[in-house]
Amino acid sequence: MPFLIYALRRALQAVPVILMIMVGAFLLLKLAPGDTVDALVGDMGGADAQFIARLRAEYGLDQPVWVQLWRYLAKMAQFDFGWSYVYEQPVSVVLLDRLGVTLMLMCASLFFAFTIGVALGAIAARRAYSVTDNVISTLGLVFYATPSFFLSLMMIVVFSVKLGWLPVGGIRTIAAFYTGWDHVLDVARHLVMPTAALSLIYLAFYLRLMRASVLEVAELDFVRTARAKGAGEGRLMFHHIMRNALLPVVTLLGLQFSTLLGGSVVVETIFSLPGLGQLAYQSVIQRDMNTLMGIIFLSSVVVIVVNFLTDLLYARLDSRIELS
């Protein structure tokens, strides 16, 4: 029961937050020069005045900003995110169509970055200042310092152009019509390089944080006590040190879930992955206001939910923390 009350309170708190985000985003986007008709006409290579006026009236862009905002919020309250004039589909359809790819990419990247980063960080800390630690730490620095666009292009050159092992981009082989496991393997092959490109910087974050955290926790009294009581190194590491050292890493995990969407813009664009990141980029360029607002709404909800889950996990890992 206390948990349900806590969850309900968090959900209610989220409503004004999302409303503020949406109103702020709407007004900010309106401040940007041009609208979707300008972008459309730009794509077409020109149009005459009647055509432009007709489109602007049809899209409701000839109305004052506050009228547009009110109409948008009224629709949003009914979970109607409007029509995408770029994709000629309801925004909800466009978003759902792209959500799967981005979730696959984000989850694969987070899983890869978190597990490998935490493991390498722990190994580096346990062998602090050794050759192993130096190699791992240097690798972490390289990952940290390499921009994802550069890494993406270099991987394409090496693994696609030179070696021919992996596809340059896309989410599946077009016109190959794979089904079943062949389709799954085909999608997995297409996700290898984007996942690596998106996750390596986060892997470096987790690695460095985990290493520092393990080193810090290993010096604490309760570890010394446990060791004095005869706990083995394995038990010490996994039961006492890791569990406590993970707390700041879990916090980072929650925070970085939101920034991953930003990172996926670059990676999805380079690898032509039809996900939300690429959609967000295209929507900005094409001033597809409704789609962009839909993405902002979706990412706001995702961040709020992930933060909530992070808090739950935090309480689970550290019994001193209570949900209240």
């Binding site: 340059v168 981009g169 896309g170 032509s272």
Partner: peptide, 22 residues
């Protein structure tokens, strides 16, 4: 038999796709 148009926004990736025969 067929024509496929692939959308690749990044021009460097498009050049790589040409070189890779995609």
């Amino acid at each position: 038999d067929r024509i496929v148009w692939r959308f690749i926004a990044d021009r460097s990736a498009a050049a790589a796709a040409l070189e890779a025969g995609e």
